[in-house]
């Protein structure tokens, strides 16, 4: 018993040691870079309540935009995937053009195009609404492809087995197809949510006061580039790291499917 305990303790200690070493190397590199570029970090601007409040507001806005876009882009992605496997030619073509265009052009272009031209034409002025729409249309195309890949990877024998067992078409969908699709898609879908959070930063281009825009404003006012953007990185990590852990959890949980 003692032998086993020692081995486990040893492994845990080794892991901690290695993690600490990595942290030291990375932080050390950043610190030396700061020194060599004659940059002294000064975070006293954070003592100004207005800046802290704005940052908090921006953080909440980013969370809000991301959640809303996640929901909407999922819907768009599902509809597009269904269009792509539909028997109706027009729907298939429409979905293909949408996906190719969106995935083939940068988000920055789509933001300007949709907000200033299409948004104005159809009266979508409110920045939050416009931002969520633009981001959802963008991410929806990627989600559609993830879904399409999952649908194609479904084993046809499973569907036949459902038939053989006596399930109706809707029962097959509910008890076999959808659960298997979910298992296959959830890990990459979670990863896509992480992309949504990071891509939302580009909405600062239309002055939507999410986290990045607030950071730009504070940076312009305080003339501090590095402190602001380092903090920005940390704040985004606060969002993306948990998502990443969730994604790994899903990957593990649904690994039986393989």
């Amino acid at each position: 018993m003692i032998k086993i305990k020692n081995k486990r303790m040893r492994n845990i200690l080794l892991s901690i040691l290695n993690a600490a070493l990595v942290a030291v190397v990375i932080i050390g590199f950043i610190w030396v870079s700061l020194l060599l570029s004659n940059t002294a970090l000064n975070f006293t601007y954070l003592s100004t309540a207005a800046y802290r409040n704005n940052l908090w507001g921006g953080f909440l806005m980013t969370v809000g935009i991301s959640l809303a876009s996640l929901a909407l882009s999922l819907i768009i992605g599902i509809i597009t995937a269904l269009f792509k496997i539909s028997k109706v030619k027009f729907l298939r073509y429409f979905a293909t053009v949408y996906v190719e265009f969106i995935r083939g052009t940068p988000l920055i272009m789509q933001i300007f195009l949709f907000y200033y031209i299409i948004g104005t034409a159809w009266g979508i002025d409110q920045k939050f609404v416009a931002g969520v729409l633009i981001l959802s249309i963008f991410e929806g195309a990627y989600i559609a492809e993830i879904l399409r890949g999952s649908i194609l990877s479904l084993d046809s024998t499973q569907i036949e087995a459902a038939k053989a067992v006596g399930l109706t078409k809707s029962q097959t969908l509910k008890y076999v197809t959808l659960p298997q699709l979910t298992a296959r898609t959830l890990p990459s879908l979670t990863g896509q949510f992480s992309s949504i959070v990071k891509d939302s930063s580009l909405l600062s281009l239309i002055a939507l006061t999410e986290l990045t825009q607030v950071t730009r404003e504070i940076s312009a006012n305080t003339f501090l580039l590095f402190e602001n953007y380092l903090l920005l990185g940390v704040l985004y990590l606060l969002l993306t790291l948990p998502i990443s852990m969730l994604s790994k959890y899903f990957e593990k949980r649904y690994s039986y499917a393989n």
Binding site: T120, D125, E217
Partner: peptide
């Protein structure tokens, strides 16, 4: 205030009534 990072966007916002 709407704070943007380039002149063209600012001009566009005015011309479009935003």
């Amino acid at each position: 205030l709407t704070k943007l990072d380039n002149v063209a966007s600012c001009v566009t916002e005015v011309m479009q009534g935003k």
